[in-house]
């Protein structure tokens, strides 16, 4: 039964059919699946499935990432209050777009995927100054700083990731935080993250979930 539901849910996500995906989740709840099962056996594996498809098939695309993430976030928000015990939070990331960058889609998809991994994401919004990234990371006890840039000059500029790295160095905070970057320029230059002083990058928002999880573990270890 669960396998059929998983298959139907994954198909709905791949068809970018939000209504069908939500209806499958409702049916699963009516059939007695627990909120924990819905999150950890249906929604989270769908994200993993998406990740596997991305590496093997170009047809897994932005729209599917967007919907996977949005539906996951929506369902998780509904289900978590109904969990028997509150899930353990894996860690925290503060995330925003670099100064001068007003493209919020990638950040939003990442946040949805992180919810499914029980990672708390503090959304700093768009056009975020470097000081704000660092101050917010300290304020929220984050392990990771996420900087999204969709334009070459906002990815490479002196005010973006490079400035955040500089601030971490100046304040002696490099051991406490890892920086991850993402966005179109990094897809066209896979070494760019090193150039701008980040610790890692993610090709897409779904992949970002695993990388951020690893970075959090690294800081906590």
């Amino acid at each position: 039964m669960l396998e059929q539901i998983i298959t139907a849910y994954n198909e709905a996500i791949f068809d970018t059919d939000r209504e069908r995906a939500l209806s499958i989740v409702s049916q699963a709840a009516e059939q007695g699946f627990s909120p924990e099962d819905i999150v950890f056996k249906l929604v989270v594996p769908a994200i993993e499935q998406m990740l596997a498809s991305v590496s093997s098939n170009m047809d897994a695309n932005l729209a599917q990432h967007f919907l996977t993430s949005q539906i996951a976030a929506e369902i998780i928000d509904q289900m978590i209050p109904r969990f028997k015990t509150a899930p353990e939070i894996v860690g925290t990331i503060v995330i925003g777009t670099s100064p001068g960058d007003f493209h919020g889609l990638g950040k939003r998809i990442v946040i949805g995927c992180l919810k499914a991994r029980m990672i708390e994401a503090v959304d700093l919004g768009l056009n975020v100054p470097p000081e704000r990234f660092v101050d917010a990371a300290l304020e929220h006890g984050a392990q990771v700083i996420g900087i999204s840039s969709m334009m070459v000059h906002t990815a490479r500029g002196d005010n973006g990731c490079r400035a955040v790295r500089r601030l971490l160095q100046e304040r002696g905070l490099e051991d406490r935080f890892r920086i991850i970057v993402g966005g179109a320029p990094y897809r066209f230059d896979e070494q760019l993250y090193r150039t701008v002083g980040a610790d890692s990058w993610a090709e897409n928002a779904v992949a970002a979930g695993q990388i951020i999880t690893d970075l959090i573990r690294e800081v906590k270890s």
């Binding site: 939000r18 932005l62 729209a63 967007f66 949005q70 007003f102 493209h103 919020g104 889609l105």
Partner: peptide
């Protein structure tokens, strides 16, 4: 409207 909100309107 921004890519984010266009995706919202388009799919949801």
């Amino acid at each position: 409207m921004g890519m984010e909100h266009w995706m919202d309107l388009l799919f949801c």
